[in-house]
Design a protein around this nucleic acid. Structure first.
Lengths: 201, 201
DNA sequence: GCTTTTTTGGCACCAGGTATCAGTATGAAC
DNA sequence: GTTCATACTGATACCTGGTGCCAAAAAAGC
């Protein structure tokens, strides 16, 4: 018996299930023209879990709050935070942040890291982005770690507006720079803004 | 028999399953102190599908490319697009876009709608945001429908840079305004940018 | 009291498997 | 030719997490 058919079938099986994880063993018998036992042996050898386990894994992954709400609260990990002074956050460009073909991060994510850091650095219950002036210096790419540094240029605790400057680096290359004007609740909290935070931890 | 216990149980059941869709009927019997048949009757009345169906739905949702990559391609539905001239998109502020307590949309989403429309309106294979000057005029809130209108002010097909102005409205109130500079592949596609598109359909 | 609703129990059945044992085909090795 | 290994198939028992249905018991409601 040729060895190839089996290996080919294994490859096909992997591919089929990868591109449609909703296939039952019975449906796979039709596609691969082998018995259901063979399908199951193959899955065993390839350690591909059964349909229900596959679906459960997918559901869990999409249910994971960290993954399912990637734009909640602060984007990136806060490394340092000196309220009303400065802050640093780290954000790694992963698969889900880039265009699959070019590997270039979508602007939203780079913006979101900077924006949420600018908001987080403001020492107030409510902080909302009023305006921003941003520049994408060079594209951020898959796997790169973006370090955003925010500096409060004028805290404006009395005026109700604060100016925050954010620089985002990959290594020593700057990829993004932005000037944010943040409304703070000391001023008129709800008049403007498109972002804010409600939980300070 | 009081009507309340049943209704209360129904509420509890809905809440429990909502916050943990992975619960089996058997586990629910422990939590609600009723028989498994009652749980099943309750699910029937509330038309809550069985565990496996719930997981399957979650898996499908996370597998659906449109939903699983909410920040892919264009955010919002394109209502009108005249390449290198103007475009209109609609984006409804839903639960997942707002801060749960204030109901105010996170800035990323409002920005993302405007940004992706600005990029989409450019008639080129590759388009990347180079810089932007944005203003959040008033907060967008849960349930509001944001209409973004983009106007290409200078297409710059030769220069490699285009200027796009975007206004986002809720009803006749402006919530956001932004000026975008977009790099287009005619110029130097990969030199800058934080966003782009790879598929034009 | 009696009636109605709610709850429970029991049983058959289903999908989509796992696990295991036995049998068959096929080709290479001696 | 016989033996052996590998691959494949079939059959059966069992599992989970249910559905569907019927009847009995319990709890309200009047």
């Amino acid at each position: 018996m040729e060895r190839l058919p089996k290996r080919q079938r294994h490859q096909q099986l992997s591919r089929l299930i990868e591109e449609n994880p909703f296939l039952t063993d019975r449906e796979l018998t039709r596609l691969l023209k082998v018995s259901i036992q063979t399908i199951r042996l193959d899955r065993l050898e390839l350690s591909i879990p059964e349909l229900r386990e596959r679906l459960k894994l997918m559901a869990e992954r999409s249910y994971d709050p960290v993954r399912s709400l990637p734009l909640h609260e602060v984007i990136g990990d806060i490394l340092d935070l000196q309220l009303d002074k400065s802050g640093i956050s780290l954000f790694e460009i992963r698969e889900e942040h880039v265009f699959s073909r070019s590997g270039i991060a979508r602007g939203h994510h780079v913006f979101a890291q900077a924006n949420s850091l600018a908001v987080a650095v403001i020492n107030d219950e409510i902080a909302l982005t009023a305006s921003a002036d941003i520049r994408f210096i060079r594209p951020a790419r898959l796997g790169e770690k973006c370090i955003a540094k925010a500096y409060v240029r004028s805290s404006g605790a009395q005026k109700g507006k604060a100016k925050v400057e954010v620089f985002t680096y990959v290594g020593d290359e700057m990829v993004f720079q932005g000037n944010f004007v943040i409304y703070r609740s000391a001023g008129e909290p709800d008049r403007e803004g498109g972002d804010g935070h409600e939980d300070r931890h």
